[in-house]
Design a protein around this nucleic acid. Structure first.
Lengths: 337, 337
DNA sequence: GTAGCAATTGAAATCGATTACATTTTTGCT
DNA sequence: AGCAAAAATGTAATCGATTTCAATTGCTAC
């Protein structure tokens, strides 16, 4: 078995308390610290973190609960969280919920058992509504999604604004029949839908928003069917990367192209959106910043639990690309360039 | 503070030992178990995992050390590992090394301090060479990359075969001047290069392989420059998703397209490879299976440490798409279809 | 020389569970 | 009914560190 603190103490000829202080931050004479470090290295001593956590009563661990790490949005966020966490001397436990409230509950329970310092969480709408963050022994920072105002710290995109920006852009390009795909499990979907409706209403228009399961497959199915309807929209907005992917696949399968047959735009600046055709117009989210900010909020709340609940709302950036070039009818008598 | 086992014992009118057994798997009468569960629920009792791990001396935790979780290959693998782990009642600690040997060493030390049951690791070439897995207190399963034979359990792609398959395919399509991009930090790059060279040699040809840093940026720079050289290749192979992305971007930036100006093929069936143009020909890796297999190997070794070192080699699947359609000169008198 | 004080060091308690061992209760069998 | 064996329960040791509190040491000042 590996060396314990007692062995180091024996080897260095001091007490275990001195070893603990020498390796940590207690007051120890330089000579002894040297001897202890020597002995520890000699024996290949590794402190047992379980023992340390048990005794010291803090775990230096944060939980990160996301719906699916395969979604590049969460991947990027999680990378930012981890970078920030390890920099602050904390470890991260990563959990995937698959948008499943049962799994969310299970992982929250696990976080309690781990006695984590805090949790960064992107809950489903149902869980967000039901969540009572002060019922847990740790603070919760929500990312991407949020619950009732003032419920917990949160860092989210300005979803209404971003959706409205997309709509305004499409309107400016001459599109009038705009459809929208929105995820039906998160607050994000609802908010983006609200911005979508509001922007259209501001122009005296109405759009058709459809709420679906947040998977590429669902989007592909719905859009394929939608395209076959008699009056199909002339532009489509997808409220996240997965839905955008499904929509694109449906277009390709139907032999249609963007913007010729239908303008396409969406959320999340994933790698492929810049590569297909002349590029897909998207709202780019400050993914790394979201993760880093969430971690910072968590750390500052741990530092001072008395802080009032804060919500950080970050703006997205509209990246205009080829998939939303001007509507044919808006190009005037000169036709296509 | 939250309830401890002692509180539950008091509430149920039994000893702490009984509580431990009732909530775990000891022999307890049905009546008492009922009473204990009742009390535990009443008090919102959550066992302290640090205490449990310290006493029971097993952590039910595995470390997963990858170079970058933003790489979709590792994302998919990690998802598989986590699914398998949680299914086996184990937790996963995820670490990103950025292909940096110092970070690798740091995380291996952290894994020792966590007293993890085992580690799944995709090491850089340097670390793989230097690693002495029996120097740690836990078994190591390597994924994607491996070190000297018999050093540690590993699950890898049949890299030589896969690279050769790509080359054979390109040759069959009529390409003769084939270039290759390979990552310079992992054994994977070397092996794929070996398969590349061997397949060409078997046809009496020589290709030009270039070893570069495994990033899209590096690939883009190198390929941009390569395309400007007087005798550019007529086909290019990229040894992973990042390099393939960089190569594609270089092509697009140069205003070239595939396969018209240059055939392009590579590794990793990432989402976008099926979306751009007529699709990119790639070797698809069984990513989920790799992760699951790694976890299974780890579990079986934990079960029986005496097992001899095993290496599982999985075959990739060649997905032929538009980027490698027949070379113009090979299309005969009929021209394009 | 010694009282007073700060800086080190050590002894022992402690964190919250599991588990070895001891004890009590129940069961099964004649 | 009586006794051995089995099952259930309790007592107390234990995991490996940190931390409290007490003891020691080394200085300074008078």
């Amino acid at each position: 078995m590996s060396a314990k603190i007692k062995d180091v103490a024996a080897a260095a000829g001091v007490s275990v308390a001195t070893v603990s202080r020498a390796l940590g931050s207690g007051p120890v004479s330089a000579a002894l610290r040297q001897r202890v470090e020597e002995a520890a290295k000699q024996l290949g001593y590794r402190p047992n973190l379980s023992a340390r956590r048990l005794r010291s009563q803090h775990t230096q661990t944060v939980g990160l609960i996301v719906s699916d790490i395969r979604n590049p949005f969460f991947t990027a966020v999680s990378r930012a969280v981890e970078d920030a966490a390890y920099q602050a001397g904390m470890r991260v436990i990563l959990c995937n919920t698959d948008e499943n409230p049962d799994k969310e509950a299970m992982y929250l329970r696990l976080m309690e058992e781990e006695r984590v310092s805090g949790v960064i969480f992107s809950p489903t709408r149902d869980t967000a509504r039901r969540l009572r963050p002060d019922a847990y022994g740790f603070p919760v920072v929500m990312i991407d999604r949020s619950g009732p105002a003032g419920q917990a710290d949160a860092v989210v995109l300005d979803n209404r604004l971003a959706a409205a920006q997309l709509v305004e852009h499409l309107l400016a390009q001459g599109y009038r029949h705009i459809g929208g795909l929105f995820g039906n499990t998160s607050s994000t979907g609802s908010e983006r839908h609200a911005g979508f409706e509001a922007a259209l209403a501001a122009h005296g228009l109405a759009g058709e928003g459809r709420f679906i399961a947040p998977t590429a497959e669902a989007a592909e199915t719905v859009v394929t069917q939608w395209l076959a309807e008699e009056q199909r929209p002339d532009a489509l907005i997808a409220s996240n990367g997965l839905l955008l992917l499904g929509a694109l696949r449906a277009l390709q399968r139907a032999g249609l192209s963007s913007p010729h047959d239908l303008a396409l735009a969406g959320f999340d600046n994933e790698v492929w959106t810049g590569l297909v055709g002349n590029g897909l117009t998207v709202i780019e989210q400050p993914v790394y910043e979201i993760g880093r900010t969430a971690m910072e909020m968590l750390l500052s709340r741990l530092d001072d639990p008395g802080l009032s609940i804060r919500s950080v709302v970050l703006a997205g950036r509209l990246l205009v690309r080829g998939s939303t070039s001007p509507h044919p009818s808006a190009q005037g008598v000169f036709g296509q360039p």
